[in-house]
Design a protein around this nucleic acid. Structure first.
Length: 294
DNA sequence: CTCCAGGGATGAT
DNA sequence: ATCATCCATGGA
């Protein structure tokens, strides 16, 4: 199987860090899609084994799969330098050590935006379920390693859906927002590709105009699909971590103050800092003790 | 500024 | 089987 060198990379950790919600474990690796391509991935140390779909209509000239994978997982990010640039405080240093090899991905823009619109007020298991349902109902079916996966549906395809169909995919009140946003993107009113040329503030403003997109979702999309490594999404987990470690006995603290602090303290790679704090907090969350073990 | 809808998996009892 | 918990956005 074709192999790609991947230093300072942990595939499983990266796929399990709340950036993407459709990869499934299969044998010793994972199957999923990158754009319209079905992919099987398996990591052995610094080797990343990569297999593309056995395409039935033989693919026309396309970019080499290794390039596509390397770009998707941002294997070009200088991880050692990024970690060295993070502030030297115990909270972030502990989290960064815990998350060695976790990279901030470069996901397809529409797929990332649509998925994070569905993510609001949902936990990872739900988001995975909705992603799968949307793919099965509206996406293209692809074969890989004897399994099958579904590409994420284009905005045009989702724009043709009815609200009821999206509700049947488990979206609840998010159906209306996703449908409205899909229609704006499909109609060219919202140019999610063209927006890549905008500065951070303008991009955030454009994203926040879309139905179902607030500051948190906008920051996730900026970070995971637009390479804006300063973007610092603040959800309840991160808010807890920030208050606990950086403002231990300050009671009155607005979200605006937290935002300003994060931007100043974590700087140009704030998104990496956020992802490390987030993943560490989730994976080391204090589990409630049952009465028996207490 | 505050309050609240909303809903299904998850874990505790 | 029942019950509490988790959660971002948007609108009142």
């Amino acid at each position: 199987m074709p192999t790609l060198a991947c230093d300072e990379f942990d595939l499983e950790l990266t796929l399990d860090s709340g950036q993407t919600f459709h990869w499934q474990s299969l044998g010793a690796g994972f199957v999923g899609t990158i754009g319209d391509r079905a992919v099987y991935l398996e990591q052995r140390g610094a080797d990343l084994k990569v297999r593309g779909a056995e395409t039935s209509p033989p693919a026309r000239k396309t970019r080499p799969l290794a390039e596509v994978v390397a770009r998707y997982f941002a294997l070009d990010h200088p991880l050692a330098e990024i970690c060295a640039s993070l502030p030297d405080d115990p909270a972030i240093q502990t989290a960064a050590a815990f998350c060695r090899g976790l990279r901030i991905m470069r996901q397809p823009r529409w797929e990332c935006l649509a998925t994070f619109i569905t993510s609001s007020m949902k936990q990872v298991a739900h988001i995975r379920q909705m992603s799968l349902a949307l793919r099965q109902c509206f996406g293209r079916k692809l074969g890989i390693n004897g399994a099958h996966v579904y590409a994420f549906p284009s905005a045009v395809n989702l724009a043709r859906a009815t609200e009821k169909e999206l509700i049947n995919c488990g979206l609840g009140y998010r159906a209306k927002n996703l449908l409205a946003t899909a229609r704006r993107v499909a109609g060219g009113e919202a140019d999610v590709e063209g927006w890549a040329a905008l500065g951070d503030e303008d991009l955030r403003a454009r994203l926040c105009e879309l139905p179902g997109v607030g500051p948190k979702v906008a920051n996730c999309v900026m970070l995971f699909a637009y390479e804006r490594l300063r973007a610092f999404p603040i959800d309840v987990w991160i808010e807890r971590v920030l208050r606990q470690h950086y403002f231990p006995r300050r009671r009155r603290l607005t979200t605006a103050q937290l935002r300003d602090f994060a931007a100043r303290h974590f700087g140009e790679h704030g998104g990496y800092a956020q992802q490390y704090l987030f993943h560490h907090a989730r994976k080391t969350r204090p589990r409630r003790l049952s009465p028996r073990t207490r």
